[in-house]
Design a protein around this nucleic acid. Structure first.
Lengths: 199, 199
DNA sequence: TGTACATCAGTGAACGCGCGTTCACTGATGTAC
DNA sequence: TGTACATCAGTGAACGCGCGTTCACTGATGTAC
């Protein structure tokens, strides 16, 4: 069959990154093998190194791509919220702390699903992860500033953003950690952290 | 050398559980091998199965032991806080969200360090983990009720406890995830989540 | 545009390694008398 | 209490497996004329 066109190669590469993004987030980087991952992308494992120098390299790139998509969804959610009732951030919280997000087969927001992998793998992936977190914090802070224009300082907005992300990530990892054996506790964590006022 | 006394066997077993508790929390269950772990306990790897049926079995027991010790420290911190200035829960938060706890070589509080392992391993460890989380929530809720006696319902105390644990765990896992590449961001997360009012 | 050849993405077997687990063996402990 | 023997915790080699990575090979694509 091979060799293939340059367009096909680029498409294959993208398929690998997207498959890795989903699988790494849902199962953890270590729990997903190259062979499994390449199969998901419709290829065999041997060709992996035509695209990436190592598994860690792919993990970093997949992490970055996941954050890019995730931050895009966030911006969209915030923008389209402008003409709806209620503060846009509340809609973000409701969507983030939903059962659907907890059970998402693609692992959902990388801030939560890669939070442990980032600390335990190469500095490359940790840097990409940190940049993604910073993106979330910036997005949240801007929205806090927008919703409370003239009432709070940018410092206050930043602090609320840090607290909000901690709440979202903490509630999500806790809810996932107990969901199979204590589904009511898992639901309670999400419900409570959704309902309590922000700030 | 072998065979050894029953007391020695019991001591060896306890050493294994304690070594595992520290190593699993600081590096993750999957990242620690049986051989490495037994060496840390002063033994060779072959004897492992004289004590445990499997690595997962040990993981569950080590998780339980870690929570027991951790909850004991919490109770102590809350009790001795009674005769000091300031609400005891604030002292818990300051201690939990400290750089020392983030960098603890034993992995610190299992709620945070085992939160991903619990969701990704056997149901046994997940059940033990969920019981530990419930222990934390109960302890926090009781303390909220004590500090605001007559002012808030037990339901309100419980909700504050859930929100607090989410904040603590979220801030800790985020701070750890970025500490090597963005130490200022890591410190900012801890500082902010320490300083913001509870509830 | 057509032809000849070099390139290289994909394939699947293979390598080396570390893992969890098993096993035959040792010899001091625990037990039965 | 002393003796004889069974037990079994610890040892370290070995097993089987799956992993990340490498490699020789294939043949259609890309390129040079």
């Amino acid at each position: 069959m091979p060799r293939i066109t340059r367009e096909d190669k680029a498409r294959n590469r993208q398929n690998i990154v997207e498959a890795a993004g989903r699988m790494f987030r849902s199962k953890g980087v270590d729990a997903v093998g190259i062979a499994e991952l390449m199969k998901e992308a419709g290829l065999t494992h041997g060709g992996f190194y035509n695209h990436f120098a190592s598994k860690d390299d792919l993990a970093a790139e997949a992490c970055g791509a996941s954050f890019k998509a995730s931050l895009g969804s966030l911006e969209q959610l915030l923008e389209e919220g402008a003409d709806l009732t209620g503060p846009p951030l509340n809609r973000v919280v409701d969507s983030y702390l939903s059962a659907a997000h907890r059970d998402a087969s693609d692992g959902g927001c990388p801030s939560a699903s890669l939070v442990i992998d980032a600390g335990r793998h190469s500095d490359t992936i940790q840097s990409v992860y940190a940049a993604g977190v910073e993106g979330y914090l910036t997005g949240f802070a801007e929205e806090f500033a927008r919703e409370h224009e003239g009432e709070i300082t940018s410092q206050e907005a930043r602090e609320r953003a840090v607290l909000l992300l901690s709440r979202l990530v903490g509630a999500m990892v806790l809810a996932r950690a107990v969901s199979h054996v204590q589904p009511e506790l898992s639901d309670e964590i999400l419900r409570t952290c959704r309902a309590r006022p922000l700030g």
